[in-house]
Design a protein around this nucleic acid. Structure first.
Lengths: 197, 197
DNA sequence: GTCACCCGGCTATTGCTCATAGCCGCAAAG
DNA sequence: CTTTGCGGCTATGAGCAATAGCCGGGTGAC
């Protein structure tokens, strides 16, 4: 008897929705986000393209599932990295973790759809990711909307730098670590001083 | 006799490379960056798709030409906006101008290729754009590499915020103007105080 | 033990895209 | 008037997503 996955039943051998997403991630890692094609995924899973439709509604849905998976990976990493830290140090660790994830998986980050809010699955994943940032900013005594603005700032800074870096958009020889640390310092300096617990 | 454009000769009536790029921009404005297709451009110019190859090497080159055109538009706007200003005010005007351009032409900005340095035409356009920022930062007494780092910071912040905003990535109701002004203030505060001329 | 059902593969087909090859006609230059 | 070449065209091929509909085998009902 097989172990029954909580995700979805495994009636026969072969594919499943999560296996298709796994294959999609492998294709993205190896050939880039642009190369994510049903034919490529089918080839990698040893199956004819139409068979994928038994597990995924189409290319658009597959991209959404991949996006949600990537955001969950980020959430997991950030949660682990920020564990046991607080204040400026936690913020800095979070920002560096963001960049590190994208350097480890540049193609996966590039595969994130630009319009994440159009799909409930991605909204859920995005909300989980948001919570990590909001939790880290707790303790700075920010008002609710103040925390939202601060989180948006952090996201803008991290996403901006990291997407330019991943695209090879920084052409000059100056050290990129230095630029990013400067951005982190700039953001941290803009926060109110943490209040005592 | 026709007026001879400096760009390229107009031997007959009809198309030219710049006319094709114009049509491409119209397609992007009306149907989004994803809809930029040779068939769409051909349809809009009243021509069969293969005819476009007489003016453009293919879809990839067309995208590059569009990207360069967009960057030049930005350069032009920023130059005009920063004219006659200096210091913190010039920096703020530049950052706001960046966001305004993208709000005026969200699809054009989204059409910018993520890897601009792979094409000499785009490198040239990017260099011109860079000069505007570097010129604005003159007067802060930054060292050469200090100016580079500061420019990268400004670009990261502006690109990050603006690309998330254009993609509809900010879901919460808090005022986006306020967030962006906060980012500008954060960046300005990180600069050394301007030195007297 | 048998049988019907359904699940998860498949082939075949359609329609869209980029891209190439090669033809043809007009218009200006001489 | 002829020549030349530019700027259109048709025809064709390859790769892709997506749909329709077939088929075989395992599972569970009886």
């Amino acid at each position: 008897m097989f172990e029954s996955l909580p995700d979805e039943a495994v009636p026969r051998a072969g594919l499943s929705t999560t296996a298709v997403v796994d294959a999609a991630l492998a294709v993205i890692d190896e050939q880039g986000a642009e190369a994510l094609t049903l034919a490529a995924v089918a080839g990698r899973t040893g199956v004819a393209p139409p068979s994928l439709y038994k597990h995924v509604a189409g290319l658009a849905e597959l991209r959404m599932l991949v996006g949600a998976r990537v955001m969950d990976e980020m959430t997991e990493r950030f949660t682990a990295a920020a564990m046991g830290r607080s204040g400026d140090e936690a913020v800095a660790v979070l920002m560096r973790g963001y960049r590190d994830y994208v350097r480890d998986h540049p193609a996966r980050y590039a595969a994130l759809p630009p319009d994440p809010l159009h799909n409930p699955v991605m909204v859920a994943a995005g909300t989980r990711l948001l919570q990590v940032f909001l939790a880290t900013l707790r303790g700075y005594g920010l008002t609710d909307s103040g925390a939202i603005h601060a989180t948006r700032c952090a996201r803008s800074i991290a996403h901006g730098f990291v997407s330019i870096e991943a695209g090879g958009g920084f052409g000059l020889p100056e050290d990129l670590d230095e630029t990013y640390e400067q951005l982190i310092a700039m953001f941290v300096a803009s926060l109110p001083r943490p209040v005592a617990p």
